[in-house]
């Protein structure tokens, strides 16, 4: 189950469309599991790493994925090689991920792009890496062509995610 927890107000229709896209992409059930409040000390733009650590423990099974959805900005991360634009972040092979709608213009008309961000972050929690195919949701999000793609994986990533999901299912 992919559980979406909202950190801000969202149009229920948007969340519904997002859960549907995630279900289609992963073949795993997805639902809006509730709203959560960001703990004190986290300020916009959020430090995505700190945010993932700071969020409280939530009701979820070991093989569930927890996706936090926010409309606030995530600060670019300063890495050894430069700054990484941060539209989402996840814990590889683990449980938690966060995605922001802050950079998506008119998100109600662009659920596809939000779904792509979410697919990538959830994909990372299943152990998927970035992909070479610009049409694939696992392609790096900060590239210009990313926004043009559909909410889908390439065959390679789709097969990898199927395989991972099958082996992690309890």
């Amino acid at each position: 189950m992919i559980r979406i927890f909202t950190l801000d107000e969202f149009d229920p229709a948007l969340i519904k469309a997002l859960t549907k896209s995630l279900y289609t992409a992963f073949g795993v059930g997805s639902e809006h599991s509730g709203a959560v409040t960001v703990p004190h000390g986290q300020q916009e733009p959020y430090d995505a790493n700190k945010l993932l650590d700071a969020m409280p423990k939530l009701q979820a099974l070991a093989d569930d994925k927890v996706l936090f959805l926010t409309s606030r900005k995530l600060a670019p991360r300063k890495l050894v090689s430069g700054e990484a634009p941060t539209l989402g972040l996840s814990r590889y092979g683990q449980q938690r991920a966060v995605v922001t709608t802050a950079t998506i213009k008119n998100v109600a008309d662009n659920v596809k792009l939000l779904a792509r961000y979410a697919m990538q972050e959830v994909g990372h929690t299943y152990g998927l890496h970035h992909c070479l195919d610009p049409r694939c949701a696992m392609y790096p999000q900060w590239t210009p062509s990313y926004a043009l793609g559909e909410a889908s994986f390439c065959t390679y990533c789709r097969d990898s995610s199927d395989a991972k999901i099958r082996t992690t299912k309890s």
């Binding site: 790493n49 090689s81 990484a84 590889y92 970035h130 900060w142 590239t143």
Partner: peptide, 24 residues
């Protein structure tokens, strides 16, 4: 080696291999 999460490790080299704002 860097003592960072894997997402930061992957992104650290991918901002060099897929330069932000540019297509390959």
């Amino acid at each position: 080696a860097m003592g960072v999460h894997q997402a930061d490790a992957e992104d650290a080299f991918d901002i060099l291999l897929f330069v932000p704002g540019r297509d390959r």
